[in-house]
């Protein structure tokens, strides 16, 4: 019989206890400085949101390596499990917070519909000290996180669509990101000689 794998919550705690840490406020303020710089450069709220997602994607593509190497999370059997691992292990390991994962089923979706989940971040380190001024009220400030999830999952063969649904900066209770699976990409091996 296979040994019972420890619950993800604990895996996340263990992973977080092992990594080098820095002050969360340095991180928060640096992110703020990045967003401000992006806004200054593009002078457009919409463009800034897109750029933040792109930067997140670049981070996700690289951060997945560290995650796979250090988190010891094993292989996920389905997309539902992937959601749990992202919420309980990955967010905990990198940002020190635990996130809730809610699986969504559209009421009248066809049986073969692609699965999706929502990540619910109550204690979001990115938004400390932040307030969106009137002219930036539509800015997707936390779009970086959407990009990170998208980039990381793409590297493990899952093309997903992510979207910032709710944000405390928009007056919501919590930050919420939807992640829906679009396509499973199977790796294609090629001969080096080709």
């Amino acid at each position: 019989m296979a040994a019972q794998r420890p619950p993800y919550q604990r895996l996340g705690d263990v992973a977080f206890s092992k990594v080098e840490k820095v002050n969360a406020e340095l991180f928060t303020l640096t992110y703020g400085a990045v967003v401000v710089q992006l806004l200054k450069d593009s002078e457009d709220v919409e463009q800034t949101s897109i750029q933040l997602e792109k930067m997140g994607y670049n981070i996700g593509v690289r951060i997945i390596d560290e995650f796979l190497a250090k988190a010891n999370a094993g292989t996920c059997t389905d997309f539902k499990e992937t959601g749990e691992v992202i919420a309980k292990v990955a967010f905990r390991m990198f940002l020190g917070v635990t996130v809730d994962c809610r699986h969504v089923v559209e009421p009248n979706a066809p049986a073969d519909a692609m699965p999706a989940f929502h990540l619910i971040i109550v204690d979001n380190p990115l938004v400390d000290f932040v307030e969106l001024p009137e002219h930036c009220s539509t800015l997707a400030y936390c779009n970086l996180l959407c990009g990170v999830v998208r980039g990381a999952l793409e590297m493990v063969g899952m093309r997903v669509e992510t979207k910032l649904l709710k944000d405390t900066l928009w007056g919501d209770e919590h930050t919420e990101i939807s992640v829906s699976l679009k396509e499973l990409v199977h790796e294609q091996y090629r001969d080096d000689d080709e």
């Binding site: 990594v19 080098e20 991180f27 400085a33 990045v34 951060i63 560290e66 990198f94 380190p125």
Partner: peptide, 22 residues
Amino acid sequence: GRQEVVSQSAFAHLFSEFVQYS
């Protein structure tokens, strides 16, 4: 303040992304 921490790699990735952008 001081007690709250995030992983150093989160910061490093963010900063490196900003350096590349700049």
